[in-house]
Amino acid sequence: MDGKRKIGDYYEGVAARYLGSHGVRILARNVYNRGGEIDLIGQDGTTLVFFEVRYRRAGSLVGAAESITWRKQQRLIQAARFYLHRHQLSNTDSRIDVIAIGPGSLKKYRVQWLKNALQAG
């Protein structure tokens, strides 16, 4: 496993624990489909949530949330739509959230949960 993947797995675990502590039930991790990859899929109340986890270390030129390009946004939306269609969940309440993780002041990192960050239409 390369270093980037190992770091990604670590921070996806951080995000999953954070979300769990906020009442989200994680249903799946690293879901690949024709549309792209979905880092985490969870249940927040009655809503199915697709999570994009982004990490940026200290000194990065842009923050974690700002690092999601327009192209990446389109791939996330396509992956979420494909997942909903494939699992016959088109009428299910769903949204795409971003978990942005960056350096913290007192803690090792700061987690920011951006709900409904992208619109899947």
Results as ranks from 00 to 15, higher is better:
99 I>D: 14
10 Y>N: 00
39 D>T: 00
83 Y>K: 07
80 A>T: 09
37 E>R: 00
117 A>T: 01
49 V>M: 09
20 G>M: 14
97 D>W: 05
120 A>D: 10
61 L>P: 11
110 R>P: 04
15 A>N: 06
20 G>R: 09
33 N>F: 08
120 A>V: 05
63 G>V: 11
29 R>F: 13
70 W>R: 01
2 D>H: 07
87 H>T: 01
56 R>K: 05
11 Y>E: 05
108 K>E: 15
93 D>G: 01
109 Y>G: 07
97 D>R: 01
76 L>S: 13
79 A>W: 07
27 L>K: 06
69 T>Y: 08
62 V>N: 03
101 I>A: 07
111 V>I: 14
10 Y>I: 01
30 N>S: 13
33 N>G: 09
47 T>A: 07
99 I>L: 15
24 V>T: 05
60 S>M: 09
40 L>Y: 03
20 G>A: 13
89 L>E: 06
80 A>K: 04
85 H>C: 15
84 L>Y: 10
80 A>S: 14
42 G>T: 08
20 G>L: 14
31 V>N: 09
88 Q>H: 10
101 I>P: 01
62 V>E: 12
49 V>L: 10
77 I>G: 12
78 Q>K: 13
27 L>F: 10
118 L>E: 05
113 W>M: 06
86 R>E: 15
77 I>C: 14
62 V>H: 04
43 Q>S: 11
1 M>R: 02
104 G>S: 10
30 N>V: 02
103 P>A: 12
18 Y>G: 02
54 R>C: 07
107 K>Y: 10
45 G>V: 05
17 R>F: 13
90 S>P: 00
24 V>G: 03
75 R>D: 14
114 L>T: 03
69 T>K: 03
1 M>Q: 06
23 G>E: 13
90 S>V: 01
85 H>M: 15
56 R>Q: 05
62 V>K: 04
24 V>S: 05
6 K>L: 15
117 A>G: 03
102 G>Y: 02
66 E>L: 04
18 Y>N: 03
60 S>N: 08
101 I>K: 01
87 H>G: 02
30 N>W: 07
89 L>T: 00
78 Q>T: 12
17 R>S: 14
48 L>I: 10
15 A>Y: 07
111 V>W: 08
10 Y>R: 00
83 Y>R: 08
107 K>H: 10
62 V>M: 10
36 G>A: 12
73 Q>G: 14
81 R>T: 07
45 G>A: 08
66 E>A: 10
14 V>C: 11
95 R>L: 10
85 H>V: 14
26 I>Y: 12
63 G>H: 11
84 L>Q: 09
55 Y>P: 00
78 Q>Y: 11
23 G>I: 08
16 A>D: 15
8 G>Y: 02
47 T>W: 01
55 Y>G: 00
104 G>A: 13
84 L>N: 07
98 V>L: 12
76 L>W: 10
17 R>W: 12
